[in-house]
Amino acid sequence: MKPLLEIEHLNKSFGGIKAVNSCSFIVPHGKIVGLIGPNGAGKTTVFNLVTGFLSSDSGKIKLDGVSLVGMSPDRIARMGISRTFQMIRLFPHMTVIDNMMLAIKNEREGLFDAVFRIPPLSTEEKHNEERCMEMLEYVGLETKKHEKAKNLSYGQQKLLEIARALIADPEILLLDEPAAGVNLTMLKKIGDLLKKLRSQGKTILIIEHNMEFIMNLCDTVVVLDYGQEIAVGAPHQVRKNKKVLDAYLGNIDVKIVT
């Protein structure tokens, strides 16, 4: 079976500095792949290239065999890639439910439907809202329905961002440091959630600095250094890889928190 996401010889420079340097790896269907590496290794840049927020200098990015190169971020999102951001990006002055309703697939967000409403919007809105509420219950935010997103705690905001990415029913979920800055209870909650998603057949690519979290969770780990993959494999293999140990100054078992 073809991998869901393929990245081949991807390149991106910023003013002469190679942020991503001929990077290649794949994400198979139904797996959780971890993308790790020291700070500045180019992990978030890879995310931004895949999701179209940055355009690559050269290389291939394919989702289910379809090239994403040159597509706008919104189009890539509609192709089935959902993502979260390192710095949480919610709609702060909108309610939790509105944040969710914006992510759910909705064919009736056009101007025509706003004005004419044929057939009425209410049944569809109600149905969507029910689905959003199910997801909110799933992550334990159902009581916050009418709260503005900015009033949630940091951990709750992280959860909401993940829930928002999930409700879009993506082919693949890209998570940028979902565990950063959240407490242990929340960390476990997020880990359990991701495992549950995998058991439902979801595909996840995850950037994370918390090694324990990554090693327990991922099927495959891709290690980036200076914009290039230096090791790819199961967590226990990567753990022993000489290059990886060098990149992390031999401190792989020490939790690196940024």
Binding site: T51, F53, S72, P73, D74, R75, A77, R78, S82, R83, F85, R89, L90, F91, P92, H93, M94, D98, M101, L102, A103, N106, R108, E109, G110, L111, D113, A114, V115, R117, L121, E125, R164, A168
Partner: peptide, 29 residues
């Protein structure tokens, strides 16, 4: 009022709040 209080209007507000997040949700901003 009708335009603003609709899924369309909701997308407009999301653009005001955060264009990048709106893009990441697939909105043609």
């Amino acid at each position: 009022h009708r335009i603003i209080h609709s899924p369309f209007g909701r997308v407009l507000r999301s653009i005001r709040e955060d264009e990048i997040a709106s893009l990441s949700l697939g909105k043609d901003i």
